[in-house]
Write a protein that binds this DNA or RNA. Structure first.
Length: 501
RNA sequence: GGGAGCCUAGCUCAAUCGGUAGAGCACCGGCCUUUUAAGCCGUAGGUUCUGGGUUCGAGUCCCAGGGCUCUCACCA
């Protein structure tokens, strides 16, 4: 089949056409072209048939051929581009130039062509470009997917996104929505005085989150480098340096499993606001998410479908403390150590390794919490869980009134954790102690990437203003706004295992 | 990493109990100047994911491997 298409390509060359096209100015998008139809001019031309007073708009368009109907001396093509699924071209032997008509005969589904001609309406009422010329722009040498059902095979859709995108227009729509949302977030933050920055992706220590990093080697310095798992410790250094409001939208890399909510590289918004706290950044995020939802929503009020339900972004997000939610679903307070322990045994849950009595208790609490409390949240109600146990939040400032709790909030929407929010810890001594506590008891593998960042402590010694900080999983936000249940559907090129291994 | 399911023509999908591998679209040849998932006539297209096994006979049953999907586990 490829050989047949090559032959047609070469035939086009023989009749003087350039099969791979070239620069073409004054191209209209297919949607733009369709909007240019002038009914009065079309009717006037149909009445008089006088070429000297043809007022119909004449335009030049390009697109991929998705339908091809050859009626002998009249050939119909339907083109597709990112702006419009289908736009009809008629190539008539009488009205089109000779080369163009010959090309229409040689055209295969999947080819990209350039057409030029007046806009008219057919008998059946379809706005159509009545071509006077047709030029090749690119030959499609490989057979395209079925023209009506599109490319269905989920694996091929991910592996060959370049086919999926034009075969299934919805794929492109999701990528466009993604771009629009990120652009909206940048504008939102910039208008509020935040400075966008870029911090290292190649780090000598992988800090800021507890995840396995990807490790690589730098030849020039002969050292191991880590792909960042988070930008946090560098953004905070910028606060020390004097920038009051910073954010970064960029990739993080985590060497963990992949599923519907995890891709090894993913996009994160991380933000810090000097002299704020977790309440400050929570308010900011709530506003930002609502703003983005409104940008996406066709209606003014931002309610968007997600999976089986509808999420209302307009009403203030729900709030519940970690302790309340725990007690509500477990039936006892998280501080009751004996009950926590016996509950774990009763439910026959796996215990974490012994890392010390204090930390052990809170790990057990969190196991119960994630299993029986967090999962019970209404997916249709955006919800803040606030005041996490301090033991689980090593980079967060403890509450003034209760040092066992941290000023940390997590936003949950649609059953997904969207982003943690913190009052940042800026006491170097407390931070150093937390680092040491986290390092204690970890196994050999973990110690290879859980390291004590001396320079970060040094920065805190110089003095970091009190601050609120947050991270927002952009891919998950896009999943919500685009109603996609897999992270792979909002990433152009998701991670795939290579074939033939 | 565990469990379950899927993999058939370029694409979308069939194939009863283990008994001749099919259709539509795409492709190729022919006809057609208002079609629109164009239509009509004709042709061609297969390592049934790979490798073994059972059987007179395997797309179908068994074993191993690969990829994908779902799910569980891991993941402060």
């Amino acid at each position: 089949m490829e050989a047949q298409r090559r032959a047609k390509r070469d035939e086009a060359r023989v009749i003087g056409l350039s099969p791979y096209g070239g620069r073409t100015d004054d191209l209209l998008s297919l949607a733009g072209a369709h909007a240019k139809y002038d009914e009065a001019a079309d009717n006037a031309f149909k009445e008089h048939k006088d070429p000297s007073c043809d007022e119909r708009p004449r335009l030049r368009i390009a697109g991929r051929v998705v339908l091809h109907r050859d009626n002998g001396k009249l050939i119909w093509l339907n083109l597709r581009d990112a702006s419009r699924e289908s736009f009809q071209i008629a190539v008539s032997k009488k009205d089109c130039d000779e080369q163009g008509f010959a090309l229409a005969k040689l055209t295969d589904l999947g080819d990209i062509v350039i057409a030029e001609g007046p806009l008219m309406m057919t008998r059946t009422g379809e706005v159509t470009c009545w071509a006077i010329s047709l030029q090749p722009a690119a030959k499609c040498l490989l057979p395209p997917p079925e023209k009506h059902s599109g490319l269905q095979d989920i694996e091929l859709r991910y592996r060959q996104r370049y086919i999926d995108m034009w075969s299934n227009p919805h794929t492109t729509k999701v990528l466009e929505l993604r771009s629009r949302v990120i652009s909206s977030i940048r504008t939102f933050l910039t208008e509020r005085g935040f400075l966008e920055v870029e911090t290292p992706m190649l780090q000598t220590q992988a800090g800021g989150a507890a995840a396995r990093p990807f490790i690589t080697h730098m030849n020039a310095l002969d050292i191991e480098l880590y792909m960042r798992v988070a930008p946090e410790l560098y953004l905070k250094r910028l606060l020390v340096g004097g920038l009051p409001r910073v954010f970064e939208i960029n990739r993080n890399f985590r060497n963990e499993g992949l599923d519907k909510q995890h891709n090894p590289e993913f996009t994160m918004l991380e933000l810090y606001q000097a002299f704020g706290n977790y309440e400050t950044v929570m308010a900011l995020t709530e506003d930002l998410v609502r703003h983005a939802a409104r940008d996406v929503s066709a209606k003014k009020a931002a309610t968007l479908p997600f999976r089986d339900g509808t999420i209302d972004y307009e009403r203030p997000f729900d709030r519940v403390t970690y302790a309340e939610l725990f007690e509500k679903h477990l039936g006892f307070a998280m501080t009751e150590r004996d009950k926590v322990r016996s509950e774990i045994e009763l439910r026959n849950l796996k215990m974490r390794t012994e890392v010390g009595v204090e930390l052990d208790h809170w790990f057990l609490v969190n196991t119960l919490f994630e299993e029986f409390a967090e999962s019970k949240l209404d997916p249709c109600r955006p919800t803040w869980i606030i005041d996490y146990p301090a033991a689980l939040s090593p980079l967060t400032r403890p509450r003034h009134d209760d040092a066992s709790l941290a000023e940390r909030a997590d936003l949950f929407i649609g059953g997904m954790e969207i982003g943690p929010h913190y009052t940042e810890l800026n006491d170097p001594d407390v931070q150093a102690a937390k680092f040491r506590e986290q390092l204690a008891g970890v196994d050999d593998e973990e110690t290879t990437f859980r390291t004590f960042d001396e320079d970060f402590i040094n920065a805190l010694k110089v003095g970091m203003p009190p601050a609120g900080g947050m991270g927002l999983g952009i891919d998950r936000l896009i999943m919500l706004l685009a109603n996609q249940s897999s992270i792979r559907d909002v990433i152009a090129f998701p991670m795939m295992k290579p074939l033939g291994s």
